[in-house]
Simulated scan of single mutants.
Amino acid sequence: MPFEALKPEIKKIATQNNLSVDERLLNICEVLEANIEYYNWVGFYFKNGDKHELKLGPYVGEPTDHTIIPFGKGICGQVAVSNQNFVVPDVSAQDNYIACSITVKAEIVIPIFVNGENVGQIDIDSNTPDPFTEADERFLEFVCKEVAKII
């Protein structure tokens, strides 16, 4: 499904005030994973209080042991420090990659900002080599802006 067609669905989920924040985040994960063929694991990590680490939030996909990620470690930990999008076309070429599954070939991580502060990120793994484009980045930035409104 094209990204533009998914935007109203993401907005609708984000404004479902009868659901908890975690329920809405999980619903967003489910919509993304179900509608974008090469999104094989979709989840959120958030800053864990005052600690310099990320804590796993709602996600869809294979279970992961990586429920806590120190700042600077792996792709997610690097985004927590850099405050920049990180697109990895080939995870095997990354020195600081935390392997979640041998099937993962690529990853994209986009930070979530609330009042200018990086509070978390959306993390997407793909079993397809080099699938992410600038359109994915722009769409996921939109998703993160919607998420920022509800957290």
Rank of each mutant, 00 (worst) to 15 (best):
residue 56 L to A: 11
residue 56 L to D: 05
residue 56 L to V: 02
residue 57 G to N: 06
residue 57 G to H: 06
residue 57 G to P: 03
residue 57 G to W: 01
residue 57 G to M: 02
residue 57 G to Q: 04
residue 58 P to F: 00
residue 58 P to V: 00
residue 58 P to Q: 14
residue 58 P to S: 15
residue 59 Y to V: 01
residue 59 Y to R: 07
residue 59 Y to C: 03
residue 59 Y to P: 01
residue 59 Y to Q: 08
residue 60 V to R: 15
residue 60 V to D: 07
residue 60 V to T: 14
residue 60 V to N: 11
residue 60 V to L: 11
residue 60 V to I: 14
residue 60 V to S: 14
residue 60 V to G: 05
residue 60 V to M: 09
residue 60 V to W: 03
residue 61 G to D: 08
residue 61 G to A: 09
residue 61 G to N: 07
residue 61 G to W: 03
residue 61 G to C: 04
residue 61 G to S: 08
residue 61 G to E: 10
residue 61 G to L: 07
residue 61 G to H: 10
residue 62 E to P: 03
residue 62 E to R: 11
residue 62 E to V: 11
residue 62 E to D: 13
residue 62 E to Q: 13
residue 62 E to T: 12
residue 62 E to S: 12
residue 62 E to K: 12
residue 63 P to Q: 10
residue 63 P to G: 07
residue 63 P to S: 10
residue 63 P to M: 04
residue 63 P to E: 09
residue 63 P to W: 04
residue 63 P to A: 08
residue 64 T to W: 00
residue 64 T to V: 08
residue 64 T to F: 00
residue 64 T to L: 00
residue 64 T to R: 02
residue 64 T to S: 12
residue 64 T to Y: 01
residue 65 D to A: 12
residue 65 D to P: 00
residue 65 D to R: 11
residue 65 D to M: 08
residue 65 D to Y: 04
residue 65 D to F: 03
residue 65 D to I: 05
residue 65 D to C: 00
residue 66 H to R: 07
residue 66 H to N: 14
residue 66 H to E: 05
residue 67 T to L: 04
residue 67 T to F: 02
residue 67 T to N: 07
residue 67 T to C: 01
residue 67 T to R: 13
residue 68 I to Q: 09
residue 68 I to P: 02
residue 68 I to F: 13
residue 68 I to W: 04
residue 68 I to D: 06
residue 68 I to V: 15
residue 69 I to H: 07
residue 69 I to S: 06
residue 69 I to V: 15
residue 69 I to Y: 04
residue 69 I to C: 05
residue 69 I to Q: 07
residue 70 P to S: 11
residue 70 P to R: 09
residue 71 F to M: 02
residue 71 F to L: 03
residue 71 F to S: 06
residue 72 G to S: 03
residue 72 G to L: 00
residue 72 G to D: 03
residue 72 G to I: 01
residue 72 G to K: 06
residue 72 G to W: 00
residue 73 K to P: 00
residue 73 K to S: 11
residue 73 K to V: 10
residue 73 K to I: 04
residue 73 K to F: 00
residue 73 K to H: 08
residue 73 K to D: 10
residue 73 K to T: 11
residue 74 G to F: 02
residue 74 G to V: 04
residue 74 G to R: 08
residue 74 G to H: 07
residue 75 I to D: 09
residue 75 I to P: 07
residue 76 C to Y: 09
residue 76 C to I: 09
residue 76 C to W: 10
residue 77 G to Q: 03
residue 77 G to V: 00
residue 77 G to I: 00
residue 78 Q to T: 15
residue 78 Q to K: 14
residue 78 Q to S: 15
residue 78 Q to C: 08
residue 78 Q to D: 12
residue 79 V to Y: 10
residue 79 V to A: 10
residue 79 V to H: 12
residue 79 V to F: 08
residue 79 V to E: 09
residue 79 V to W: 10
residue 80 A to V: 06
residue 80 A to P: 05
residue 80 A to L: 04
residue 80 A to S: 11
residue 81 V to I: 14
residue 81 V to D: 04
residue 81 V to Q: 12
residue 81 V to M: 12
residue 81 V to G: 03
residue 81 V to L: 13
residue 81 V to N: 06
residue 81 V to S: 06
residue 82 S to D: 15
residue 82 S to P: 02
residue 82 S to R: 11
residue 82 S to I: 02
residue 82 S to H: 08
residue 82 S to C: 02
residue 83 N to A: 10
residue 83 N to L: 01
residue 83 N to D: 14
residue 83 N to H: 14
residue 83 N to C: 08
residue 84 Q to C: 05
residue 84 Q to S: 12
residue 84 Q to K: 15
residue 84 Q to V: 02
residue 84 Q to F: 01
residue 85 N to E: 14
residue 85 N to P: 13
